[in-house]
C-alpha cells in the first residue's frame, strides 16, 4: 500500500524470559505510568541495544539507559527493580552519552548476582516512553528471547 508504513521492530535487550509489563513488581512500571513496553527476566548479564539509537542518558548509577531511535521513539531500559539504590555496583556501561549505537550492540555488562545478593529483582522493564507517537505496538508472544536478536516488540508509526 502506498501510504502504509512498514512495521518496525525492537530487539530483546537481554537473554531471558519475556514477561508482560503488568507482571513487574513495581507499580511505576506495571501501571504503565512510565510508558508501554515489556520486561525480561535476564539469564545473562549483557544488555543489548534494541534498535539503531542515540544514547540520550545513562544514570550515574549505570542501571538505567535512555535512548532515542532514529525514527523518534524514546526508550528506557531499567536494569533491575529499585537498583538505583545500588549506586552503580555491578553495572559496567559499555557506551557513553551521545553515542550512536547499532541494534544488537552491547550497552552494558551487568553482574546479575550482585543484584540478587542485594536482595533485589533483576527483571528489566523495557519501555517506550512516548507511546503516543505509535499507531500500533505489539509485544511478542514468545516466552523467551535472545538478547540483540529476538524481536520483542513490533510497532508502526
Amino acid at each position: 500500500m502506498l501510504f502504509s508504513k512498514k512495521k518496525s521492530v525492537l530487539l530483546a535487550v537481554a537473554d531471558g524470559e519475556v514477561l508482560p509489563l503488568s507482571q513487574v513488581e513495581d507499580e511505576a512500571f506495571s501501571s504503565g505510568m512510565l510508558g508501554k513496553g515489556i520486561a525480561i527476566k535476564p539469564s545473562s548479564g549483557s544488555i543489548y541495544s534494541p534498535a539503531d539509537v542515540t544514547v540520550v542518558g545513562i544514570a550515574e548509577s549505570g542501571h538505567a539507559y535512555t535512548l532515542e531511535s532514529a525514527d523518534g521513539l524514546e526508550l528506557l531500559i531499567h536494569i533491575g527493580i529499585d537498583t538505583v539504590g545500588l549506586g552503580g555496583k555491578g553495572f559496567l556501561p559499555m557506551v557513553g552519552e551521545g553515542d550512536t549505537v547499532k541494534a544488537g550492540e552491547v550497552l552494558c555488562r551487568v553482574d546479575l548476582q550482585a543484584i540478587r545478593d542485594a536482595g533485589l529483582s533483576t527483571v528489566i522493564p523495557f519501555l517506550i516512553t512516548n507511546p503516543e507517537i505509535t499507531k500500533e505496538l505489539k509485544p511478542t508472544q514468545a516466552a523467551s528471547a535472545i538478547g540483540g536478536q529476538s524481536v520483542i516488540l513490533e510497532y508502526r508509526l
Binding site: L34, G35, V56, G57, A59, E60, A64, T66, L67, E68, E74, L75, L76, E97, T129, N130
Partner: peptide, 11 residues
C-alpha cells in the same frame, strides 16, 4: 519528555 528529564542526571 521522560528521557530528557532523566538525562539531567539531577542528584
Amino acid at each position: 519528555r521522560l528521557i530528557s528529564l532523566m538525562s539531567l542526571g539531577a542528584k
